[in-house]
């Protein structure tokens, strides 16, 4: 059981990372990546909603009539997102204000729907939950890395802590929208190249051992 969960975790965090491999859900969260703290909060929100949404949907999947499946999915996912919104508004008003509409936009984040459809609809509740956590974290990790780069270069700080002296000229472009697209593209490039290299190495090792090369995993 433990090994299986670990496999699901690895799948979401790296081999099938929602951003690198599935290219999902960059819309609603990229906008807040010029600030590490906001990004962390959003990533946690997405992870929470994906994990519990998957758990709930998987638990009630046999009860849902086919005709209203979509709408029930939306309802369940919205439930968790609204919960996040209510909690933020009550306990972190400043952050809630800064995030503005982007908390609500977690609902339309394709990862939530994507995992509900692709995994929770066909699996038991517990693995679905783990899958949700893994995908949320995999997604959050990439976004946080991007946010660290953007906040550091754009403000000279990380999490509001100034890391460099006054000599540093902030790269204003890093605060603005285009840099997020560039950084996601660079991260994608890096991960793809690493993936390709690992694949090639594996193949070479297999070939050297005289075993037939495995079919490329899609």
């Amino acid at each position: 059981m433990k090994g299986k969960n670990a496999a699901i975790m690895k799948e979401g965090l790296w081999t099938n990372n929602p951003i690198f491999v599935q290219v999902l859900g960059i819309c609603s969260t990229l906008a807040v990546t010029n600030n590490v703290r906001n990004t962390l909060i959003m990533a946690l929100g997405v992870t929470f909603a994906t994990a519990f949404g998957s758990l709930t949907l998987s638990a009630i999947k046999n009860l849902i009539p086919r005709k209203v499946r979509m709408i029930v999915q939306v309802l369940v996912l919205s439930f968790y997102v609204i919960l996040v919104d209510i909690v933020l508004r009550a306990y972190a008003p400043a952050i809630s204000k800064q995030l503005g509409p982007y908390v609500g936009l977690i609902i339309t984040n394709c990862i939530l729907m994507g995992r509900a459809e692709a995994y929770a609809a066909a699996n038991k509740p517990w693995p679905s939950f783990v899958d949700g956590v893994a995908n949320g974290l995999g997604y959050g990790a990439v976004l946080t890395a991007i946010a660290v780069a953007r906040e550091f270069l754009g403000f000279g700080s990380v999490l509001g802590l100034r890391l460099v002296g006054d000599w540093f000229t902030p790269w204003t472009i890093m605060i603005m929208a285009p840099s997020a697209f560039f950084l996601v593209a660079l991260a994608l490039w890096g991960s793809k190249s690493l993936g390709a290299r690992a694949e090639a190495k594996k193949k070479a090792a297999k070939a050297a051992a005289g075993a037939p090369a495995p079919a490329a995993k899609s």
Binding site: L63, I64, P65, V68, I71, V72, L75, V76, F79, I82, L83, I86, V87, R89, A90, Y91, P93
Partner: peptide, 24 residues
């Protein structure tokens, strides 16, 4: 089903909202 699902999910939200209202 739709009715029960709506009620089941909206009730806790209404509660949470009422509960946090003074704080907000």
């Amino acid at each position: 089903f739709t009715f029960v699902a709506c009620a089941a999910f909206i009730a806790p939200l209404a509660l949470a909202n009422e509960f946090t209202k003074p704080r907000v």
